[in-house]
Simulated scan of single mutants.
Amino acid sequence: MISSKNLSNGTRIVTEFALGGDMLSSVSAALAQESVQAVSPVTGYEFVGQLTGKGSDVSSQLSLIIIIEMMKRQARMAERLANIGRRDALERTGHLLLELATRSGVSTRPGFDGFECPLKQSDIGDAVGLSTVHINRVLKDMRLNGLVSFRNGIVEFLNRRKLEELIEFDASYLASHMG
């Protein structure tokens, strides 16, 4: 799922990519004036009633999970802001692809370092603040430099370690626990 903010000039900025297991809040999306679009098959569950606070209709465990998910989204948003504000095109793109790979989990294909990616180049460009032409150039340069290949909906890391070092990727903000 893609959450995005449509701007008055007709462009959009992708604010979040929701992956399997992520929670989305229709209230949060409405407050942020974000639109949400499925780019692959999804299953959703609706929680009706008061989810947190006094008189909550759900268990304290579920309330804790909701709060943790909100904190994780905030951490990803902070990285997205740093990405657009202070990183160059290669760093932005590499950072996003590494984040998505980390969040997607370990590949089930032996000897394959990558993930299925139903996104278009324009989706990636809208997430990192680059035009489709520019993102196409960056992805081509990454492939020619032996870092990443993005073809037919598959992102393959040709040299993940080198890419992580080159862009100084630190996945600690993606920790799945509160510490």
Rank of each mutant, 00 (worst) to 15 (best):
N136F: 06
R161Y: 04
V138N: 02
K140Y: 12
A127L: 04
I167S: 04
I124G: 04
K162G: 07
G153K: 02
L174C: 10
T108A: 15
F157V: 01
H177V: 14
V128E: 12
C117H: 02
I167W: 06
L158T: 01
R137M: 11
P118H: 00
P118R: 01
P110A: 05
M178A: 15
F112S: 10
S131E: 10
V133H: 09
Y173K: 11
R143Q: 15
L139T: 03
T132Y: 06
F150E: 08
R151K: 11
K162D: 11
N145H: 09
V138A: 04
E164M: 14
D123L: 04
A171L: 14
G111I: 07
V155F: 02
L119I: 01
A127T: 04
S131C: 04
F169Y: 13
H177Y: 15
G153M: 08
P118A: 03
S172P: 14
L166Q: 13
F112P: 10
N145S: 11
L163A: 02
G153R: 02
G125S: 10
K162P: 00
L174S: 09
K120F: 12
I154N: 14
S122W: 10
G111D: 08
S172M: 15
F150K: 09
C117T: 02
E116T: 10
D113R: 06
A127M: 09
V148W: 07
A127H: 12
S107M: 07
D126K: 08
G125R: 11
R160N: 05
N152Q: 13
E116S: 13
S176L: 13
R143Y: 14
I167Y: 07
L166G: 00
D141C: 03
F157E: 07
R143S: 13
M142H: 03
M142C: 13
Y173R: 12
V128F: 09
T132S: 13
P118D: 00
F169C: 04
F112M: 09
L139K: 08
R151D: 12
N145Q: 10
R160I: 05
F115P: 14
D126Y: 06
P110R: 08
V133P: 00
L158A: 00
R161K: 15
R151W: 01
L130P: 09
E168S: 15
S107R: 08
R137T: 07
G129C: 07
L119N: 01
G111Q: 05
D170M: 12
C117W: 00
Q121D: 10
L144K: 11
L130K: 05
L119M: 08
L147C: 03
A175T: 08
L174F: 08
N136R: 12
K162V: 06
C117D: 05
G129W: 05
K140E: 15
E165R: 09
S107E: 05
I154K: 15
L144F: 05
I124L: 15
A171V: 12
T108I: 08
T108M: 14
S122K: 15
P118F: 01
R143I: 02
P118Q: 03
L139E: 06
L166H: 04
